[in-house]
Design a protein around this nucleic acid. Structure first.
Lengths: 180, 180
DNA sequence: GTCTTTACAAAAGCAATAAACGTGTAAAGG
DNA sequence: CCTTTACACGTTTATTGCTTTTGTAAAGAC
């Protein structure tokens, strides 16, 4: 990815979070990145392409953060806890991440938040599945992966107020469903 | 509840599903129920009151259906399956029920779908909790109840396409978390 | 070659106006 | 208890022109 491309994506992400899709101006994205309006069009085709690219970029950023945390802790459940803590923090910090993951509050932020019909968070299921496979080789882990992702998503959309409790709940269910 | 009140609630529910909150006309509700516009105001105060009443009514209707199904089957897990099947069917059939339960697609349907900040579906947690307590007296069932409701809701919001699979998943998790 | 400048048509948004409609309240009557 | 009638108020809707923005293209600069 070129240098300018990254500058444009960052600028677009900022402006998108601040003004929404509707209020996003191509010329403003360009000037923030220090390039001309046409460069933006050369790079992304049109406004939809730009916003789609922002969504993809944010998703990759988030998923790479999750993978890092899953790999950093030797204990599989602590790693999971860490990854979910990261997820909660990200959604609290970044409206765009929140929109990409949950599809909530996406009214004027991302008209194109889904890939193949599902919110992009469902890509996370595969990441969790690989994580579990690494620690429990040969076991059937897909069900546990999907369940934990769905549960974590549920806590994102409808917080119980207690973050630690939510994480405990997710891990507890993960462990319980591994024994089935 | 008076006869006219019920007629009004039904008329309002129909029109609300068809035209949304914004497009709902008080005079249309009145004429469908065969009464004057003022009768609607006498009964519900204003438009918000009417729509709020519709939401409460739909919720009670739904929850009573759930309770019936939970009580009708002697096997606790089959009863749960039946209740969730009922839930899925209802949300597919009725946009309003769907809005009340999930809060999705509620943009112009129900501005007041939450009670104390939570979508009304979370009342279902208590119903499920009572159901489990009946079959497993003395056991700690709250966690399982909340988890199954969250999971069912997740399948409502993001269907996997396979209804039987979704029900199996919910019940499987319910059983697994009961053994913790 | 890549980016910028300039130019331009088509679409979409904005501001101001007036007309029509819907809400909510009140009072009199059946 | 419900209906009819009336009314003030706020909110849509439609219309009109005006401005902005999008998206494309071609010529020039580093």
């Amino acid at each position: 990815m070129s240098d300018i491309t990254e500058l444009l994506l960052d600028a677009a992400a900022d402006l998108l979070a601040a003004r929404g899709f509707h209020g996003l101006r191509m010329i403003e994205v360009a000037s923030r990145a220090g390039v001309s309006r046409q460069t933006v069009y050369n790079e992304f085709g049109n406004k939809e392409g730009l916003v789609q690219a922002v969504a993809v970029h944010k998703t990759e950023e988030y998923l790479s953060g999750v993978m890092t945390r899953l790999q950093d802790d030797p204990d599989p459940w602590e790693a999971m806890r860490s990854a979910f803590r990261f997820t909660f923090e990200q959604t609290e910090k970044d409206r765009l991440v929140s929109a990409v993951l949950t599809g909530q509050n996406a009214e004027d932020l991302l008209p194109f938040i889904t890939i193949r019909g599902h919110p992009i968070l469902f890509h996370a299921t595969e990441v969790v599945e690989q994580h579990l496979s690494r620690h429990f080789p040969g076991r059937h882990v897909r069900f546990t992966a999907e369940t934990t992702v769905r549960l974590a998503l549920s806590h994102l959309i409808m917080p119980s107020g207690d973050l630690d409790g939510a994480m405990d709940a997710v891990v507890k269910v993960a462990r319980a469903t591994m024994d089935t």
